[in-house]
Simulated assay, not measured.
Amino acid sequence: MGHSTTRAALIYLHTESERDRKIADGMGRLAEEALKNEDQQGSGT
């Protein structure tokens, strides 16, 4: 990865994993909201 030490690489990998989890969680919430809105709009007709 080009880092000076293995420890530095592991720190960056851990940080990246946390960021990826936050992104995935946020996208999951957005998808749930979109599905709820779709269901509510569909039941009103």
Results as ranks from 00 to 15, higher is better:
residue 7 R to T: 08
residue 4 S to V: 00
residue 21 R to Y: 10
residue 33 E to Q: 07
residue 14 H to W: 07
residue 27 M to G: 04
residue 6 T to A: 06
residue 24 A to S: 10
residue 18 E to W: 06
residue 40 Q to D: 15
residue 13 L to R: 15
residue 35 L to K: 13
residue 16 E to C: 14
residue 28 G to H: 06
residue 1 M to E: 02
residue 14 H to T: 07
residue 3 H to N: 08
residue 37 N to Q: 12
residue 5 T to E: 03
residue 40 Q to R: 13
residue 24 A to Y: 08
residue 37 N to G: 04
residue 8 A to V: 06
residue 43 S to E: 12
residue 23 I to N: 02
residue 22 K to A: 14
residue 41 Q to P: 00
residue 22 K to T: 13
residue 30 L to R: 09
residue 19 R to V: 04
residue 10 L to Q: 06
residue 41 Q to F: 08
residue 44 G to E: 11
residue 32 E to K: 12
residue 27 M to T: 10
residue 27 M to L: 15
residue 30 L to H: 03
residue 16 E to G: 07
residue 19 R to P: 01
residue 26 G to T: 06
residue 32 E to G: 00
residue 41 Q to I: 09
residue 18 E to K: 14
residue 26 G to L: 07
residue 12 Y to I: 07
residue 42 G to Y: 12
residue 12 Y to E: 07
residue 35 L to A: 13
residue 26 G to C: 00
residue 36 K to A: 14
residue 40 Q to N: 13
residue 5 T to L: 02
residue 35 L to R: 11
residue 27 M to I: 15
residue 9 A to G: 06
residue 42 G to F: 14
residue 29 R to D: 01
residue 44 G to K: 12
residue 45 T to W: 12
residue 42 G to M: 15
residue 11 I to L: 05
residue 20 D to Y: 03
residue 8 A to W: 04
residue 35 L to V: 08
residue 26 G to N: 10
residue 7 R to F: 14
residue 3 H to Y: 11
residue 44 G to N: 13
residue 22 K to W: 14
residue 41 Q to T: 09
residue 30 L to G: 04
residue 27 M to D: 08
residue 35 L to D: 08
residue 11 I to W: 02
residue 4 S to W: 04
residue 8 A to Q: 07
residue 28 G to V: 05
residue 34 A to T: 04
residue 38 E to H: 13
residue 5 T to F: 03
residue 5 T to Y: 01
residue 6 T to I: 03
residue 8 A to I: 05
residue 33 E to H: 05
residue 6 T to R: 03
residue 40 Q to H: 10
residue 37 N to T: 10
residue 2 G to W: 03
residue 19 R to I: 04
residue 6 T to M: 00
residue 39 D to Q: 11
residue 1 M to K: 04
residue 20 D to V: 11
residue 44 G to I: 12
residue 42 G to V: 07
residue 29 R to I: 01
residue 37 N to W: 13
residue 32 E to R: 13
residue 19 R to L: 03
residue 44 G to L: 14
residue 26 G to P: 03
residue 17 S to Y: 11
